[in-house]
Design a protein around this nucleic acid. Structure first.
Length: 124
RNA sequence: GGAGUGAGUCGGGCGAUCGCUCCUAUCAGGAGAGGAAAGUCCGGGCACCACAGGGCAGGGUGGCCGCUAACGGCGGCGCGGAGUGAUCCGCGGAAAGUGGCACAGAAAACAUACCGCCCGUUUUGGGUAAGGGUGAAAUGGCGGGGUAAGAGCCCACCGGCGGCCGAGUGAUCGGACGCGCAUGCUAAACCCCACCCGGUGCAAGACCAAAUAGGAGGGUGAGUGGCCCGCUCAUAUCCCUCGGGUAUGGUCGCUAGAGCCCAUGAGCAAUCAUGCGGCCCAGAUGAAUGAUCGCCGCCCGCGAGGGUACAGAACCCGGCUUACAGACUCGCUCCGGUU
RNA sequence: GCGCCAGUAGCUCAGGGGAAAGAGCAGCGGCCUUCUAAGCCGCGGGUCAGGGGUUCGAAUCCCUUCUGGCGCG
């Protein structure tokens, strides 16, 4: 099973704007102090996919890349195992997220993802 | 040693674990952000449209000579200015024409005379531009002669203008001669002169796959230069409009190049040439180059500890501009000390 | 990635070489009114986005930086 490994390849990412929009329209939503998360069942392949959005307001390219890489690292190591296969997750950074430490990002995303999983199950 | 000035280099290091992208000889191994990758201010390659051609319009550059694929870049030289100096900054034409120069001032450039000064007269007329005053700017400067008072009116020096001779590829410099001097500033005002510039951009462009309905109406036009000419294509299997459908998919372009390093030679230099000299150095596409931990370096702090710049390739190069903690190298100048 | 536009008072905008930079709304004070609104009178408020240059003189012309916005596909 792919999710048991900690890899992160092209198959694990969202690629098109339409996919991002779809998750944000039909998925369940959870908001924290520094992030907005959406999750939805989208596909049949045995993967959980991630897309990240960091607006330009948060900083220059170096700052934004750093935040996206931290989010991706949290997803790879802990978030993915919380969701069923076929789920897509979108994480949007809010102002202030760029100055968090990696462990703070992990805590905040972990709590939010737990709520999302519960709401996804209750919806189905 | 201090102050300054001009070039240039680096811009953290080592290791462990978990990951990402690409490549290859695929149980594995290798490579993987910058000096600015940035801003997009210039220039070129490449691609398509004519092989980018003529004219107009528009834009750019601006001392001279060179370098270069090209440039608004760089190098050398010339002139002017700033600085004790090393060094730095500036640069076509105002006697081709048009316009502008507020306020103040008599007058802002065809000219003119407010207060003065001088002569004659006592109403006023004439001669002056020395002095005063206004202004950002007032019709060469300074000294002497001269005169009623003055003035290039005359003279010397400086400045200016003109052609001549000489040096230099040239900008320009030097020389003697002539002219008492005629030409205020502004061209990042219009403009003139010389030179340069076709447009659009890798989302260029090429191929493959999939899909729909050769439905209706109109047309000499279409190929995107701002316009005209010209050129090419099509006269229906073409173009436009309306309506509808599929869909915004894949591969190539895509990284070996005006490439990097070294040596020798030419040149003051920018730069160029040669070597059967060495090297291969990102190629992603919601977009890789990361996360965590340990040790060391540097900075701040008594310490616990904290900090470690600016910043992330997107077709590729050459420049310019802007941002940048800190560290280092070399040349030169001035001042001070020692011998 | 490429192309284009804007930035002037708290807000919306004029002004395109010579001003002490204006207008409307808003604000403050006064008059009127029992009070408020309306009306009338007055007042304050500006590094003309920042820096450099051209000119005697720059909000205006030129260069550069920053910020905001729009378009293409």
């Amino acid at each position: 099973m792919q999710t048991s490994r900690s890899t992160f390849t092209a198959a694990d990412r969202l690629h098109r704007r339409a996919e991002f929009v779809h998750v944000q329209r039909v998925g369940v939503r959870s908001q924290t102090a520094h992030f907005v998360l959406y999750a939805a069942r989208t596909h049949d392949a045995p993967t959980v996919r991630l897309g990240t959005t960091v607006p330009r307001k948060l900083g220059n390219a170096v700052v934004r890349n750093k935040l996206k890489r931290r989010i991706r690292e949290c997803f790879r190591l802990q978030l993915r195992s919380l969701f069923d296969l076929g789920t897509s997750l979108v994480v949007i950074g809010r102002n202030g997220a760029q100055s968090l430490t990696t462990s703070a990002v992990a805590d905040e995303l972990g709590n939010a993802a737990g709520q999302l999983r519960a709401r996804l199950e209750s919806r189905v």
